[in-house]
Design a protein around this nucleic acid. Structure first.
Length: 436
RNA sequence: GGAGAGGUGGCCGAGUCCGGUUGAAGGCGCUCCCCUGCUAAGGGAGUAAGGGUGUAAAAAGCUCUUCGUGGGUUCAAAUCCCACCCUCUCCGCCA
């Protein structure tokens, strides 16, 4: 079957395949039970009508009542079994991943991902022009790049030590010009998408059910923070509230595509990656991000996916950063996604590629869980929408790439041209005098 | 946190005390038809979603469920009981 083959393409997923067979089996019994249950219900309804008539005629209905009561017990047996089956199926289904899109390259793991584009940043010329008062030979490139966790901390615009004091390891604190840069990035991310995307400022603590519906629970329960007392969950990404916006709604086809964006904090325990990439801003528990997201019809989905990717890429490209686009293979694909392109920026100091956006098309996988539908024009009934999303701007990693890329020999940091309006027209970030 | 009121179809709004052709009156909106130089007005019909069955696939038909959610009582629940969620009003508290 198509679904089976699709799941198989993800590779080491024999468990999911077995589950899938189980689901089909359970569902067979479920349907039989539902049929039996409904038949009995029908009889009960008939009997009830007869009882009503008898009683209104002041006649005795004891026999019918007894019979109906008996049927009620039978109905319950079926009903309870259906409930159990529903629960089992649901549990299994939650663990079954989405079917990869046709174009998605086959592969086992991240090593099989395909780099589609690799684009050298324009940062060099930017820094050259930005430092025209300095000696021309002092280009950023001529200097040996330094990791941000060294010089940015020294400048006092990144304070990891005190962040750790306040909140523990893998938390960051931006200060002075560092904080201003972070804030500039958020506004930049929102402004450049405000032409088509509605800005949302959503709640960032959500119900357990909301997390389940977007596929973040139970699978990633170890990666999520939990406020046990109120059973609220800090969102790991703006995708959660944005995807849930349309929950249980039936949209009109003419409304599609719908586009949303939100700048939100994101909270991640990063339990699965403890000890990895812990330096500086490479991986932090709390960060800011501008998320862009769309609901679309199946036909629109492809174009929207490209649009989201273009926008994610445009943001880093216009910042003058070196970036590449990676086509995620079936073996490395997130469970909910049908197709994903990662955008990675190069951080010359850390000398590594940092994932700063995952632009994914979820087909109707998320919408089925969240129950987001639309009414197709000239057609009866409803269909599930397709959801797509990606980060427009992920603050810490872009922040890191920017400061490392634009680090000037004199110790200052040049401001990328597109960010100048967001930093009061300034073209330099300087050390924080209050934290030296 | 304390006290009270309430959640009914795309929307408004009856019904809930006293359970029974009420999937739900009436109105608005919408769709189609008729009438009408145009428009306005008028007349008629239709107008929830989901599941099961049915079909090559649809559709019709049959059937089940849904009156905030989940349970309970009953032959039978929008109507009675319990828990929870949400909204509103007043008081307190904090911004």
């Amino acid at each position: 079957m198509r679904v089976r083959a699709g799941i198989a393409r993800r590779g080491e997923n024999s468990a999911a395949l077995a589950d899938f067979g189980k689901v089909i089996e359970l569902d067979g019994e479920r349907l039989q039970r539902i049929h039996d249950r409904d038949t009995i219900r029908h009889e009960i309804n008939e009997l009830s009508g007869q009882v009503r008539d008898l009683r209104q005629a002041n006649k005795d209905a004891k026999q019918l009542q007894a019979k109906s009561r008996q049927l009620g017990h039978e109905e319950n047996l079926h009903g309870e079994r259906v409930g159990i089956l529903d629960e089992e199926i649901r549990t299994l289904l939650l663990a079954i991943p989405n079917i990869p899109a046709e174009g998605c390259p086959d592969g086992k793991n991240e090593e099989d991902n395909t780099v589609l584009t690799e684009q050298e940043g324009r940062a060099k010329s930017h820094t050259d022009s930005a430092q025209h008062t300095d000696s021309a030979s002092h280009s950023a490139v001529a200097t040996k790049p330094i990791p941000h966790w060294e010089f940015a901390v020294e400048m006092g615009i990144l304070d990891l030590e005190r962040a750790a004091k306040i909140s523990g390891a893998m938390f960051a604190m931006f200060r002075g010009d560092g904080a201003a840069l972070a804030r500039a990035l958020l506004t930049y991310g929102l402004d450049r998408n405000s032409d088509l995307y509605e800005e949302i400022l959503p709640p960032t603590l959500v119900r357990r059910d909301t997390m389940v519906r977007t596929g973040h629970l139970p699978k990633f329960i170890d990666d999520a923070y939990e406020i046990a007392r109120d059973d609220l969950w800090p969102i790991p990404t703006g995708e959660v509230p944005l995807t849930s916006l349309g929950e249980d709604e039936i949209l009109d086809e003419s409304q599609l595509p719908m586009r949303f964006m939100a700048a939100t904090p994101c909270y991640r325990r990063e339990a699965g990656s403890a000890g990895r990439d812990t330096r500086g801003l490479l991986r932090v528990h709390e960060f800011q991000k501008v998320e862009i997201l769309a609901y679309a019809t199946e036909d629109q989905a492809h174009l929207l996916h490209q649009e989201l990717l273009d926008r994610a890429v445009g943001a880093v490209s216009d910042l003058g950063l070196t970036y590449r686009i990676v086509d995620i293979c079936t073996g490395d694909l997130g469970a909910s996604a049908a197709r994903t392109f990662d955008v990675e920026v190069y951080a010359p100091g850390a000398d590594r590629w940092l994932e700063c956006s995952s632009v994914s098309w979820f087909s109707d996988y998320q919408a089925r869980r969240a129950n987001i539908r639309y009414r197709p024009q000239g057609e009866r009934g409803s269909r599930f929408v397709h959801t797509l999303n990606g980060s427009a701007v992920a603050v810490p990693r872009l922040w890191a790439a920017i400061v490392e890329t634009y680090h000037l020999p004199n110790g200052e940091i040049a401001v990328p041209e597109v960010l100048k309006p967001y930093l009061g027209g300034r073209d330099r970030l300087t050390a924080n005098p209050q934290n030296q």
